[in-house]
Simulated scan of single mutants.
Amino acid sequence: MKTIIISVSLFLVTVMGYQLQAQVIQITSKNNIELKIEELQKQKNKIEKLEKDKLREEVEAINERLEDNEITATEAAVLKREAAEKRALNIQNQMNIIDENIALLQRNAKDVEGEDGEETQEIDEYYTSLEFLRYDKKNDVRKDYDSIPDRTRSEVLVAFGLNHSLIDDVSLSDSPYELGGSRFFEIGYGWQTILNKAGSIRFNYGFSVQMNGIKAKDNRYFVEDEDQTILEEYPYQLDKAKLNVYNLVLPVHFEFGKATTQYNSESAYYNLDHFKVGLGAYAGLNLGAKQKLKYEENGENKKEKIKEDYNVEKFIYGLSGYIGYGDWMLYAKYDLNTLFKDNPVEQHNVSLGVRVSL
């Protein structure tokens, strides 16, 4: 009897030992699998960071080539997109491999637990959407690769300076008009459209209101004599006799100059703050003319404004151009039409001044 009891006890101890050993092996295997899954998850973060760093280096190299004028802005955008697509595929392929390994380890973890064991805690699925960014080291701003510079922009234009009327076969020294006292002013609204990939050729167009003034000298003023406009001596001492001609014109210019692509928080744009030259023409209609007189009568200062036709040409057309840097330019324009349409000697208005883009 004693022998039987001892034998049964030894059998029970052996069975319990096997069960304990199996539980230890199961726990150890489960912990190892969880550690491996955790390490794989960390590898995904390292891969994503590594590929982003490589992409940034490639974009910086492309920007340097763009600044050195080795490639155009459009070519740079294509190269950046290709680099981004390559890095995206690299990340996606490596992520897929890691996800397959994680799925395999999760299945093995369930097998280790057995039918009666509790399932291993489900691993949260790791999703990542890598947003590729355009990086511009000069301005330290970023923008998605779908942004391209706008090719058309608008601007307000203001011009002012000296004005004169050139008379055929009459030199400036013999001119009846004051050179320094005659001025012009122009204000308009226009658009600018980029014509080529590099942005170095632009087409400018819009509308402007011009005021061209010519000031008579030698105490003379402007008088309509039937179908002509002539100068006559004024009966009182004149301080000023100035004829202002108002026109509405449609100017067009082809502009040439360097352009660089820049980025801000909202969009990409062409930076045109460089040396530039514009050549073009204008055409429009005369809006009217007005003469301003300032004189002294019986010791009293008087002012007078006379609005007449003055036989001014109704259709206006001419040539214009500018040269400068950024928004400030030296500006000149010349009317091909005559100032007074029926005068026997032709006169052409000419202006020289400053043109500012606002």
Rank of each mutant, 00 (worst) to 15 (best):
Y177F: 13
D327K: 15
Q43N: 12
G278R: 02
K143P: 04
N32P: 00
K303G: 12
Q192D: 07
Y263K: 10
R87A: 14
V223C: 05
D140H: 07
I167N: 07
K258H: 11
L105D: 02
T152V: 12
N264P: 02
K341T: 11
K49C: 09
L352I: 13
I230F: 03
Q228A: 09
Y310V: 01
V356Q: 07
L293E: 02
L89K: 13
V78S: 09
P235G: 01
V24P: 02
L285F: 12
N349I: 12
L358C: 08
L272D: 13
G280L: 09
L166W: 01
P149C: 06
N108H: 09
L293M: 03
S165R: 03
K240E: 12
D168N: 11
N196M: 02
R65K: 15
E82G: 00
N204Q: 13
K307T: 13
R81P: 06
L172E: 11
A109K: 07
S173V: 14
N298H: 13
Y317A: 07
L162P: 00
I194H: 05
A83W: 07
F185I: 09
Y205T: 07
K258C: 01
K2P: 05
Y236A: 09
L250V: 15
Q262G: 04
V350E: 00
K197W: 04
F11C: 10
D53Q: 14
K110F: 05
L285E: 06
K276Q: 15
Q228G: 00
I33A: 03
N93C: 07
L179Y: 08
K46N: 10
Y205V: 05
K54I: 06
W328C: 01
F340K: 01
G117L: 01
T28E: 13
R153I: 08
I214R: 04
T229N: 10
A103G: 01
D168M: 03
G161L: 05
P149D: 02
V249F: 03
I323K: 00
E100K: 14
V112E: 03
I167G: 08
R202P: 01
D150C: 09
K86Y: 12
W191Q: 14
E346F: 05
V312F: 13
A198I: 04
T74A: 10
R220Y: 03
V8I: 15
L89F: 06
V245H: 06
S129H: 12
N204G: 00
T193C: 04
N101V: 02
T72I: 07
S171H: 04
E178D: 15
V350M: 03
G206K: 04
E82T: 11
E57L: 10
S171W: 06
G280K: 06
E232K: 13
A73C: 09
S147Y: 08
E226I: 13
G257N: 08
L50H: 11
L104D: 08
